[in-house]
Design a protein around this nucleic acid. Structure first.
Lengths: 167, 167
DNA sequence: AATGAATTTGAATCAGTAGTCAAATTGTAT
DNA sequence: ATACAATTTGACTACTGATTCAAATTCATT
């Protein structure tokens, strides 16, 4: 708590004017983080294009959101100490995102743009890889966040595309 | 420490007969974890086949090791509180694994089995996805660890293969 | 059975750190 | 300038949880 306060240029006790307790801070961070992801999802879906293009937009938005907004690292922490009500609220939003992500994969499969694969497992694979990025990303690295987002998205997409373009 | 001791059926203070301190336990877990990954690497490389087959074997070994040996979750924790000497020892072994993984990607590119992609970034993408698995994996799920390993490996591999098989 | 080494334990210590609160300060409207 | 609300602070409390250690117990060897 002292470290957080110092980072904000305030004193430790002053934090309790804005947050109920330590867990509350973490909860707010998680909500902020998932909201950023939901924005990425909505933006990608509203752009009315093919599932493939929507997926590309979603991946790039999502990765850039995690890299640039600074809330990505919070996903490393777990929800074990959340109050039941907090966990419910958070899981609800996260499920909206994950469900939207999977639906997009299904859309692509239906449109024959993606091959028939295990939707849930593929979702875990892609999203897990993205969640891990804050572990190794350094803003001082040679690639910009946009370059990372584009190149990783391309790799994830290529794994979705059937071998023969149109069967 | 009390929880760990209880899990082992011993008392808290007895742990200090086997470990220097709490960090030491985490360090030993990390070393065990990375050793399992190194075994997966060695096993895959010694089987003398094409880079593509080696990669498939490595991915499946690696994923199964993480799922079945129970040390996968330790990768979620960070190394911040390691002693300098501990961090050096651990990072050394982890780098051997990551370097071997990247070399295998390079081999595949040289052999025209993989397309030309950013080796470092692709390595992060695949390994990050695998590191994240313990976050969602439940042994009681519908897929066995072997099925998960096979299906995820297939997805990762497909993203490496060029569009036209032989150019 | 006796001896010494290996292992285990309970009780005590000790530091760190989350959280509280009354008082002080700052901001705002009249 | 005054009064009231919003914000900030320092000192204090309370508790958790890692670590120590001397004593007790178990184990192996002769």
């Amino acid at each position: 708590m002292e470290d957080i306060a110092a980072e904000l240029g305030m004193t430790k006790s002053n934090l309790y004017y804005y947050f109920n307790d330590k867990q509350d801070i973490l909860y707010q961070c998680h909500m902020r983080s998932v909201d950023i992801s939901l924005k990425a999802l909505e933006g990608a879906l509203s752009a009315s294009r093919s599932p493939r293009e929507k997926m590309r937009a979603l991946l790039i938005n999502h990765i850039r959101g995690i890299l640039d907004d600074g809330f990505g690292g919070v996903m490393q922490t777990d929800l074990d100490n959340f109050l039941p009500e907090q966990r419910k609220q958070y899981v609800k939003r996260r499920d909206v995102f994950e469900h939207g992500f999977r639906e997009l994969i299904k859309d692509g499969i239906r449109a024959r743009e993606f091959k028939k694969l295990n939707v849930k497992l593929t979702g875990f694979a892609i999203l897990g890889s993205i969640n891990w990025i804050p572990k190794w990303y350094r803003p001082t690295g040679s690639l910009s966040s946009t370059q990372i987002a584009e190149q990783m998205s391309e790799y994830f997409l290529d794994g979705l595309i059937p071998k023969e373009p149109n069967r």
